[in-house]
């Protein structure tokens, strides 16, 4: 180590003279100043997994929106004669989409058996009632996403105000509000959801409400903890001293500073809601028939999985991809908004 330092030879041109008139130029900040959000977006863009997830989700959302007006065929129309047809594309040239199935060791052209006219094919096959699975999958994804988004609305509408009020008021109000949260959170939220679903008639609305009743708690806790630190900040103190009303302080100072926490938590709530819907439909108290959701498609597919595996593959792949994409995006957003957590 010591030998190295003596090796360095200083020559005359090793040093450059700093001219007096250069000072201004050297002090200039070359990069444009970025707002907090611009900075976060810049960090997010560096995270490849998150960017891919974002594009994938955007694509899925577009598909879901299209499915409101258009699906290849009516997702609820039954053609019992065409039941349980395997996936087929065009003339069946693509492996995995040939329209043939292995029945007792023999490859059978199911489409010929069912006397399906040439040119008619089902990209992802049909289910036991002959319903087009591709259309049902499109509708199912749309419904699951809708549930995810609606459930997070409760996060925003109940969780955020609850957390802000609890943190801002402090003292007895805070203690009372936190006790309430503790009691609710000590019941497994699945149990609450199930009890609610038994009480209401099953359907989109009741699932969303049932999940909303318990879903806001994490958000409320995070927001409260953040509010507790925010309210001791100087700018909040200044706003208070100037006589700003608590509501305005919350809207102008607290919520904008809470936004990263809120966005990240929302991104984690969506996959949770999608999972819950799938779970509820899977055990038979979710979206009622004949409507398709990822959960109902999975549970229908599971019943015949051993013999008609394609009915399970695609819903399973769809829900897995959606869940992974949301989780990766949420992770990326958290790292982008809160660089402290990044190692």
């Amino acid at each position: 180590m010591a030998d190295n330092s003596t090796d360095i030879k200083f020559k005359e041109n090793s040093f450059k003279r700093i001219e007096q008139h250069n000072v201004d130029e050297q002090e200039k900040i070359s990069a444009p100043s970025l707002t907090f959000f611009q900075d976060a977006v810049r960090r997010l863009k560096k995270n490849k997994a998150a960017v891919i997830s974002l594009w994938l989700l955007a694509l899925i959302v577009v598909f879901s929106i299209i499915s409101i007006w258009w699906t290849p065929s009516d997702p609820n129309a039954q053609h019992v004669a065409y039941a349980n047809l395997p996936p087929k594309i065009a003339n069946g040239q693509i492996p995995g989409f040939t329209g043939k199935a292995n029945v007792g060791g023999r490859i059978v052209d199911k489409y010929a058996q069912a006397k399906v006219p040439a040119g008619t094919y089902y990209v992802l096959g049909t289910d036991y009632l002959g319903r087009d699975l591709f259309s049902r999958l499109m509708k199912g994804i749309a419904l699951s996403l809708l549930i995810g988004f609606l459930a997070t609305l409760f996060d925003l509408v109940i969780g955020v105000p609850y957390g802000v009020v609890s943190g801002w008021k402090g003292g007895r109000v805070d203690t009372l509000m936190q006790r309430f949260i503790e009691i609710i959170s000590s019941i497994p939220n699945l149990v609450i959801v199930i009890l609610m679903l038994l009480l209401f008639t099953p359907g989109l609305g009741s699932i969303v409400v049932a999940m909303g009743i318990t879903g806001w708690i994490t958000m409320a806790r995070l927001v409260r903890a953040e509010t507790l630190t925010l309210k001791t900040q100087e700018y909040v103190l200044a706003a208070r001293t100037l006589g700003e009303s608590p509501f305005k302080i919350a809207m102008k100072h607290l919520i904008p500073n809470l936004s990263s926490t809120i966005i990240i938590q929302t991104m984690f709530s969506i996959p949770t809601a999608i999972f819950f819907e799938a779970f509820l439909s899977f055990i038979g108290i979710g979206i009622p028939a004949p409507n398709a959701s990822l959960g109902t498609l999975l549970s229908d597919g599971q019943k015949t999985f051993r013999f008609l595996p394609y009915q399970m593959w695609y819903p399973a792949a769809a829900i897995s991809i959606i869940m992974i994409a949301f989780n990766l995006l949420a992770d990326g957003l958290r790292d982008a908004f809160d660089p402290k957590t990044q190692e």
């Binding site: 799938a278 779970f279 999975l298 599971q302 399973a316 897995s320 869940m323 992974i324 949301f326 992770d331």
Partner: peptide
């Protein structure tokens, strides 16, 4: 870890069974 967190356990269960 991401797979384990994202894929619902009933999907795992059915895949293992299959």
């Amino acid at each position: 870890a991401i797979l384990g967190r994202s894929i619902p356990n009933f999907v795992f269960a059915v895949l293992l069974q299959f």
